[in-house]
Simulated assay, not measured.
Amino acid sequence: MEKTQRIIIKNKNGLHTRVAAMVARQSQKFEKIWDCQLYLRRINSQEGVPCNSVLPLVSLKVKNGEMVEVYSSDSGSEEAVFRLASFLGQTPELEIPETEAIDSILQENTLASEKIFESINNGLIAMDSNGIINIFNRAAEEITGIKAKDIIGKKGDEWVPNFNLNDLLHSKCENLGLKHKIGNKWVITNKSPIIVNEEVVGGVVVFQDISQLEELSWELHSVKELKEKFNNILETVDDGICMINRCREITYVNHPFVKMFKKEGTRVLTRKIQELFPKEKFGDPFFAGKEEIILSTTDGREFIMHARPIMIDAKFRGNVVVARELTEIAKLADRIELLSQKTQYLQEELAKKEGLNQ
């Protein structure tokens, strides 16, 4: 059953940073004695904030004269609730003008810092020397799936054990660029202790979700592998192949193409295909894949060349141009004709033999 105690804040500046620090200190002491968790909320609010952390208390922006409620759901917490409520109700106002000015500056900076923490895309966790979480920003919620209201005021290692937060407090050493897995997500973390007067007073963990980067890395590896296979295929075929962009400039030639036309690969790249074969006429039907070109070289060889359009997302991006030597085609045709004649001869001989057997 929930134990509650209502009080009216009597400080002129409300529950400002200095008072919040005093309340957090008292709350930590009472929580340790009575083994409970204390919270503070406005009267009309269903949810409160942990009393053992300064920033959540300040973020309530409680003003002078407002009624608030200290509460706890833990068993045996009645005395702790009463003690903290009494402390809140009688916290003296600091009247020194210089102190008020300092409080105003602290308050403004605290709220500004809170806005900054909530605006950054990286997850941010801050904790005190006991490992109690006091900052858990929006990005940390999104990456871990843990709500700030559930983890603030509690030991971080119980909620994000992969981060080894206690080790950070004990080691006094920074740990940068560590890779962790949280659920189905991969994150890179930078962990740093907060050291004051050679004593660790807390720690900060900044982490970034790299799940998409991991996926992109895998896709990039697959693309590189596919490209290597594709290059090997292009270099081992007998046909001469070149690729041109939509400006009809050559972007790639394979080894057979260089050998066929005696064009050094490095000398033809970025040149227009028309420049390589100035005597030929490469019209639009050729680049549309509707027309073939037969061209001759100075040494008397003939080649047949055709182009296939490259379409990506229904947009024309260039062509793959394939060239094959006609003499090779003629030789192949002669071999086919010879094989055809041999086949016909064997069929005739077989027919004669079958006739004799009958």
Rank of each mutant, 00 (worst) to 15 (best):
K61Q: 14
K61F: 11
S73T: 08
M67R: 11
S72W: 01
G65P: 03
R41K: 09
K63M: 15
R42N: 05
R42M: 02
E66Y: 04
Q37V: 02
L57N: 11
L38M: 08
I43H: 04
D74P: 09
K32W: 14
K61V: 15
S73R: 01
V62Q: 03
E47S: 08
K29Y: 15
Q37E: 04
L40I: 13
G65A: 06
L60P: 03
Y39Q: 09
S72D: 00
D35N: 10
E31D: 03
V49K: 03
K63R: 13
L57G: 12
I43L: 07
K32F: 14
L40G: 05
V68W: 02
Y39H: 14
M67T: 15
L55T: 09
R42P: 00
K29E: 12
E69A: 07
S53A: 15
M67A: 13
L55C: 12
W34I: 06
R41L: 06
K63L: 13
L57W: 12
I33K: 13
K29H: 14
L38W: 00
L57K: 10
Q37T: 01
V68S: 00
L40E: 05
G65K: 02
P50D: 07
V54M: 10
W34M: 05
N52M: 12
N44E: 08
L38P: 04
E31L: 04
D35H: 08
Q46N: 11
V68K: 00
